[in-house]
């Protein structure tokens, strides 16, 4: 069973339905034991970084997540599920993250008025490193993004996909059993479903 961790309620139904569409049996949960027992864990999240970390604390989900990640359970982070892995975010902050990936989360600071924030819509990703999951998405494929902040890893080797919005930024990372993306595979039509299918099969 795949646990979709309900940290900060929002549109989790789409993640559940997208996983189901590619044959993944998933359940949306905020129960620590269900997270601990899951074969795989998906952490989606939209909204504010601070609200997300508060959700983790209030629902007592931080420790279970740390445990399953340390144990090697496959982890797929989406949007805030990526950002939360880092040391800190400058959103309404600085605010502390889980510190599992060294680096920070920074706001887009475009100098060109044509570059809008939030970065909202379909943008191309390019492969920065080979990855068992990342390779499900072809180099140059379009995926759906919606965010104002992006991760900046200290070690560029964790970056497996990049995109551009007034400059290059990290669109996906890999660290051992942890794979996390800034874009929304559940909203990226066929391209996104291919990624989710790889995660389900892996």
């Amino acid at each position: 069973m795949i646990a979709i961790v309900d940290v900060c309620s929002g549109n989790l139904r789409s993640v559940e339905k997208a996983l189901a569409a590619v044959g993944g049996a998933a359940t949306v949960t905020r129960d620590a034991e269900t997270v601990r027992k899951a074969d795989k864990v998906v952490v989606p999240g939209q909204g504010a970084f601070g609200a997300f970390t508060r959700g983790l604390a209030e629902r007592a989900l931080e420790e279970p997540l740390r445990e399953v990640i340390a144990r090697g359970t496959p982890y797929l982070g989406i949007c805030l599920g990526l950002q939360i892995l880092f040391d800190s975010s400058e959103e309404q902050g600085p605010q502390r993250g889980l510190g599992l990936v060294a680096g920070t989360v920074r706001r887009f600071q475009p100098t060109d008025h044509a570059i809008k924030v939030p970065h909202m819509g379909w943008n191309q990703v390019r492969r920065a490193a080979a990855d068992p999951l990342g390779d499900a998405i072809g180099d140059g494929a379009h995926v759906y993004f919606v965010h104002s902040y992006h991760v900046v890893p200290d070690d560029p080797r964790v970056t497996v996909m990049e995109s551009d919005h007034g400059g290059g930024f990290c669109a996906a990372i890999r660290k051992d059993n942890v794979f996390a993306v800034q874009f929304h595979p559940e909203k990226s039509q066929r391209v996104g479903l291919a990624l989710l299918a790889s995660f389900v099969r892996a």
């Binding site: 929002g10 939209q46 104002s148």
Partner: peptide, 8 residues
Amino acid sequence: AERFGCQA
């Protein structure tokens, strides 16, 4: 925006 994020 505060509850669900400005993207929503």
